[in-house]
């Protein structure tokens, strides 16, 4: 069954019957209870991905690697991060594979891409809350491409640790390219700090953002944050 499905995968394209690949889906599910089945499936998927496939078939493989991929899948997926047609589905898998090597592959790809692909990789690092990416993302807040700068600021907000807040605060002091995203990132950091009981750090962020120089929407958000700091304290 699985052999037949992998044969079908070689010719799989838009309009092909997904039922022909059902055995692959079944094996991905069965892999939870049977590590050998999972490992065999992963190896076959990697091999297929390294071969000749249509874009649709490559996408399908990446979707399955998002379910069963391990560190073994990372090199094949990393190679796709820099390709316009494949970068998203490569992230589809790498964002969800819970090994450090997947995050490392995403970080390393940053220096090889630009524009939208870079934005995508930044967003995946944010979604993984990859603290090892904070320094790099901090540098990207000042990127001349506003989309990259915005994405980096939002990702730092999602990561939400003290170093993220530091990078965002530093960017706020200079001439921020995208103040809305930096402010949103800072508010997000402050909320994470409040949850982890770092009231003083959260309060410092809120006080900065409560200043008259900021728009009313931001001042109100900061004031609500300050009240939360106070109520937590009480």
């Amino acid at each position: 069954m699985l052999d037949t499905a992998f044969e079908a995968l070689k010719k799989f394209d838009w309009g092909s019957d997904l039922a022909e690949l059902a055995a692959i889906e079944d094996a991905a599910i069965a892999g939870h209870a049977n590590p050998e089945t999972r490992e065999e499936l992963e190896n076959r998927l990697i091999s297929a991905l390294n071969g000749e496939l249509t874009r649709d078939a490559q996408d399908y493989v990446c979707r399955k690697l998002a379910m069963v991929g391990t560190v073994a899948s990372v090199p094949a997926l990393a190679g796709l991060l820099v390709k316009k047609e494949n970068s998203h589905l490569a992230r589809f898998a790498l964002e969800r594979i819970p090994v450090a090597e997947a995050a490392q592959a995403l970080r390393e790809a940053l220096s090889h891409v630009d524009g939208s692909l870079k934005v995508g990789i930044i967003s995946s690092l944010g979604a993984r809350r990859d603290s090892a990416a904070v320094a790099t993302l901090g540098g990207l807040i000042g990127d001349r491409d506003p989309a990259i700068a915005r994405s980096a600021a939002l990702a730092l907000g999602t990561i939400g640790n003290a170093e993220s807040a530091q990078a965002l605060t530093a960017a706020m002091r200079t001439s921020p390219i995208n103040p809305q995203a930096i402010i949103d990132g800072l508010l997000s950091c402050a909320e994470a700090m409040l949850v982890s009981d770092q009231r003083a750090a959260a309060s410092a962020i809120y006080k900065t953002l409560a200043a008259d120089s900021h728009p009313r929407l931001v001042r109100l958000a900061a004031t609500r944050g300050l009240l939360s700091c106070g109520s937590k304290q009480a």
Binding site: P98, S123, S124, A127, A147, S151
Partner: peptide, 14 residues
């Protein structure tokens, strides 16, 4: 199962 909590969004959406 935790791999199903979210999915990567196509660039440039975040």
């Amino acid at each position: 199962a935790n791999r199903f909590v979210d999915r990567a969004r196509r660039e440039p959406w975040q």
